[in-house]
């Protein structure tokens, strides 16, 4: 199941090679090796505190790897000079765990800011873009609300709208479903699937919500807290039924006994 070949396949959007993440002397995860293909919905999963968000922060260049490298379309992202890395980063859209909307700006200003600073569009065009992005996530009419005035779920959706502001190649979402009720979480999953299908972007999601994982992911990596390295990579449904790593199977079955997979959501 685990692919440990060291030649990047031609179509790999993101390739992580021997990545070790550490805070000072404390190693969070070592020897991570995986690939994300174009148009994948790729899930980073694992127990609480195992380093999922840390891995995401490495992927978007907010932290430097202690060892190993991260390749985007075959180019080494971690070794590039700042200017080239900036060009890479502009192709990412990131939604942070709490939404992380700029609290002193309205929703419209939040989405407009990256567009204003990175393009030379006239104000009217930017305004139209903002309305379009907000309506994609079901928030049209909320342009002039401040992040503090709307609910947590709406903040997350607005966060996704802002992440999509510059039509990113790769969308990174940090725990989009956490803290949402099951229905909102489900709607968010639908939203992610439809955005991927219609925009053709690659999506990398940090989550540990099994329902979401099985509903949307076609590829995944499991970070194992006990061994401090990756437990498995692959399609989560296959991992649940056929992974040779018991920790992965246990996680994907919520620790329940191995039952026939007929009652699985599909």
């Amino acid at each position: 199941m685990t692919d440990r070949s060291h030649n990047p396949s031609p179509q790999a959007k993101i390739a992580v090679r021997g990545l070790t993440m550490a805070y000072g002397d404390f190693v969070v995860m070592r020897d991570l090796d995986f690939e994300v293909m174009e148009k994948d919905i790729f899930v980073i999963m694992g127990g609480s505190g195992c380093g999922k968000s840390t891995l995401l922060r490495h992927l978007i260049g907010l932290r430097e790897p202690a060892k190993g490298s991260i390749l985007y379309e075959g180019k080494d992202f971690t070794a590039t000079d700042p200017a080239e890395r900036g060009a890479f980063i502009q192709r990412f859209g990131v939604m942070y765990q709490s939404g992380a909307l700029w609290s002193s700006l309205t929703l419209a200003e939040n989405i407009a800011l990256p567009i204003e600073e990175n393009t030379s569009l006239p104000p009217k065009a930017i305004q139209d873009l903002v309305s379009y992005k907000l309506s994609l996530v079901g928030l049209s009419g909320y342009e002039d609300y401040y992040p503090a005035d709307i609910s947590g779920g709406m903040n997350k959706r607005a966060g996704i709208a802002r992440a999509m502001a510059l039509d990113p190649d790769i969308l990174f979402l940090d725990e989009p479903g956490a803290g949402l009720d099951p229905l909102s979480s489900r709607r968010l999953d639908d939203l992610i699937l439809r955005l991927r299908d219609s925009l053709g972007s690659t999506v990398v999601i940090v989550t540990h919500e099994l329902a979401s994982i099985f509903a949307i992911a076609n590829n995944s990596i499991f970070l194992d807290t006990a061994t401090r390295t990756q437990g498995a990579t692959g399609n989560p449904k296959q991992l649940r039924d056929h992974s040779d790593n018991p920790a992965v199977r246990t996680f994907l079955r919520r620790g329940e006994d191995e039952s026939p997979s007929s009652n699985s959501p599909s």
Partner: peptide, 14 residues
């Protein structure tokens, strides 16, 4: 802003 990851969000928009 830092606690709320807003500064990280600025960085990722370049």
């Amino acid at each position: 802003m830092k606690a709320n990851e807003e500064i990280d969000a600025l960085k990722t928009f370049g």
